[in-house]
Design a protein around this nucleic acid. Sequence first.
DNA 1: CGGATTTTTGACCAATGTCAAGACCGGTGG
DNA 2: CCACCGGTCTTGACATTGGTCAAAAATCCG
Lengths: 253, 253
Amino acid sequence: MGHDETRNGRVTPHNPIADDGDEYKFCSTCAFGAVCVGRGVDKIGLSELHCLVEHVGSYRAGESIFRTGDRFGAIFAVRSGTVKTRLVDMEGRELILGFYLPGELVGLNAIHPEIYPCDAVALDTVEVCRFLFPALATLAMRIPQVQKELFRRLSKDIGDASLRNQESSADERLAGFVLDLSARYAARGFSGQSLHLSMSRSDIANYLGLASETVSRVLRRFQDGGLLEVDGREVTITDAAALRDIAKNLLHR
Amino acid sequence: MGHDETRNGRVTPHNPIADDGDEYKFCSTCAFGAVCVGRGVDKIGLSELHCLVEHVGSYRAGESIFRTGDRFGAIFAVRSGTVKTRLVDMEGRELILGFYLPGELVGLNAIHPEIYPCDAVALDTVEVCRFLFPALATLAMRIPQVQKELFRRLSKDIGDASLRNQESSADERLAGFVLDLSARYAARGFSGQSLHLSMSRSDIANYLGLASETVSRVLRRFQDGGLLEVDGREVTITDAAALRDIAKNLLHR
DNA sequence: CGGATTTTTGACCAATGTCAAGACCGGTGG
DNA sequence: CCACCGGTCTTGACATTGGTCAAAAATCCG
């Protein structure tokens, strides 16, 4: 197979993977880490949460974790790899809704319609934790921190999604995109300095509402301007301040 | 004051207002209507929910229901009028995040940061119900339907917001905008045929990521093409099918 | 190595933004 | 009642960003 070779050596930022945790520690990059780590969930609550989780995968690049129209039954926390969510319209065009890194939750938008309203597709080798939603909701009724964490995650996704809607130039979008990815890796303890884009240029373009040619051109311009180094899908940020300055109009968090 | 004169006569689609309901019926357009109406919430749960609500208002056009940075304490259901949420950046430019009609919930994006991440501003005379969030969350731990309804609303907002992100032409956006408003009025029992835009052209433009001039021009073109009648802020849809056809690429719900 | 796919680059063009002027509309005060 | 005023809306002329098309280059993978 060879797709998990990075697990043997040093964990690199290029293929971050959450450790498995145990009943008391839980996965360090886990979606519910905040619930468990140092926030006083009692051991019983924690182990109940742990019981409810099921590790699934690996998925290979291109495989679906769920598909549009599937009955909603669970939300998924990414353990390793990157997931994209997308819609495909009748003409076969794709619309990318989001990218999910280790520690992030996929499927929260499916609670309402009770079917998954999009596909979730692995961009590389992906492992996830599955939380059966009815069980999670039941647990949330007994453990306030679980309920709170769910509300928090849902609310955050609303804020993030609505912030993405602002009109802005290609430069702003790209700068914002790179900084956002960087911050999200950094938040989970990985390098925010140099990052691997698991998605194609056209996925990025689609997600940002641009043409893939534009993504290429802007990245090149950023590189020429010394803001970052681009080598294929490896990106190293060399002037974060300048990027932030370009993206500043995207009034973030 | 005279700002609530419409309550005396026939309720018009131009200033829809939710009725006050009672302990068992609840406001007919209430945010939690679905919880209460015909879904088997027991009378105790219902009256508890009712106790927790506080009617506030009226706000006049331009007044704020909450402001960016205020400590988060409550979510608001619009009872009458229209609310917009917006950010204002350092240069004083506005970014419109959304419009809220009677029956819709404002403030769900504030749960996560625990402060309101935007202003909520009345566009006309507005009345709201205030739900103190801690109390609501507590109630949600005892009444499954309340919890479920909260999850549902949060999840729906994620879906709606992320769907707004697709790149699309000015025509598609405008057609989609009008149809969306129309459907939302219709869902609450008001006329979806003819509607009043409580917001200025520049608010619409800002929300859709367009210039206000473009909004004017597209509306004019739609009118010339017989798709709708525009008279200032009054819009009557005359060819919904054609509008749907234009907006079809925005793969909706 | 060879074919497929992705990415880059260039030339061109259209959609939409910007700027500016004028029309409209509602409210106010003479 | 009318004239004026401020804001909003519309319309026109023009500029610009970024999309489209096409081809070359790079990369991937068997």
